[in-house]
């Protein structure tokens, strides 16, 4: 009878009723479940670091810090060192950051400072984002069969005429630093462009109006007002782009040439940490696998530091404008 009344009330007036004990039990367990997965996220990252570190221990105790400064990689003689790879990783990432950063920031300016009607802005923004969606192995394939043949004449010309400059001191014999850097910069460009755009969009409209009110031209406003205001967010974008470049694997494994050398030349083959892992891991024996784990640890450490720094910069500056 009471039930009937209740259900009648539900239909006509109100859906509300106090939670039953089943509801409360369900609620508690669901909350506990979400909390568990939150903890699992933290533990997962810790477990990744632990697992890679653990596998590297034999190599760390055998080779110590000398591993980081030695330049030989000889599986048969059991001699390993990753200085050329560390150099190659940093060199390629800095060059890619230079190129990709320039284009990324320019595009962010182009897309946020009223150069285009809104519709076109959106189309171009989507095109740039699609650049990021292409898998890196496809860029690698494109690099081998399209980019390298395309830039070889240019590289030869530079080497023949300006060979005394260290950057051009070797000729491009196929894969090498230059094509790798070009592809790498294409891959970090969308990251830099997207975060820089956020930084520019976060600036209050008044700031720009004030600049125009002072009688500035469009570019005076951009260079002296907008860029400095957005600089925090842009810097964070560059750091995150750098982090992406450090960890990028496939395009480099296919294009950088896998040579254990340290060279300033843009046209010389080189190697990076990620490419070293990709190229040597599948055929590695037990000892080499442990050594590669050590190299993975170094890569992990570098990228973690860079990414944490980037995230901290972006969150502290609040993506630009609002301070």
């Amino acid at each position: 009878m009471a039930m009937k009344q209740l259900s009648g009330a539900e239909e006509s007036h109100s859906l509300s009723r106090p939670p039953s004990s089943v509801d409360i039990l369900f609620d508690k367990s669901f909350r506990a479940l979400t909390c568990t997965f939150t903890w699992a996220t933290i533990l997962l990252l810790a477990f990744i670091v632990y697992k890679i570190g653990r596998q590297a221990i034999p190599a760390v105790s055998t080779y110590g810090l000398g591993f980081l400064t030695s330049t030989t990689w000889d599986v048969n003689a059991h001699e390993f060192g990753i200085l050329p790879e560390i150099w190659g990783t940093l060199y390629s990432s800095f060059l890619a950051l230079f190129l990709g950063g320039f284009f990324g920031i320019t595009i962010a300016i182009f897309l946020t400072q009223d150069f285009l009607p809104h519709k076109l802005e959106m189309i171009l923004k989507n095109i740039i984002e699609l650049l990021a969606a292409i898998p890196s192995v496809v860029y690698g394939l494109w690099g081998i069969y399209v980019l390298i043949p395309l830039i070889r004449p240019v590289a030869d010309l530079l080497h023949d005429n300006l060979g005394w400059i260290p950057f051009f001191s070797t000729s491009l014999s196929g894969p090498g630093m230059f094509p790798a850097v070009l592809v790498l910069s294409i891959m970090i460009l969308p990251t830099v462009a997207a975060i820089s755009q956020d930084a520019f969009r976060a600036i209050p409209h008044k700031t720009k109006e004030a600049a125009f009110g002072m009688g500035t031209t469009r570019w005076e406003a951009i260079l002296r007002v907008m860029l400095p205001t957005a600089s925090g967010g842009i810097f964070g974008a560059l750091v995150l782009g750098f982090g992406r470049a450090l960890g990028e694997t496939m395009a480099l494994a296919m294009l950088v040439g896998n040579a254990n050398e340290i060279s300033l030349s843009l046209f010389a083959p080189a190697n990076t940490l990620a490419a070293l892992l990709a190229l040597n891991f599948p055929e590695a024996g037990e000892l080499e696998a442990s050594v590669l784990m050590y190299a993975a640890c170094v890569l992990l450490l570098i990228t973690l530091l860079v990414n944490i720094a980037g995230a901290a910069i972006i969150s502290r500056t609040g993506s630009g404008g609002k301070k």
Binding site: L45, I48, L299, T303, V306, N307, A311
Partner: peptide, 17 residues
């Protein structure tokens, strides 16, 4: 913070793990 850090994890390291 951990999730943000993991977005920057190089994909090759996921393989190593």
């Amino acid at each position: 913070f951990c999730a943000k850090t993991m977005t920057g994890l190089p994909s090759i390291l996921a393989g190593v793990f």
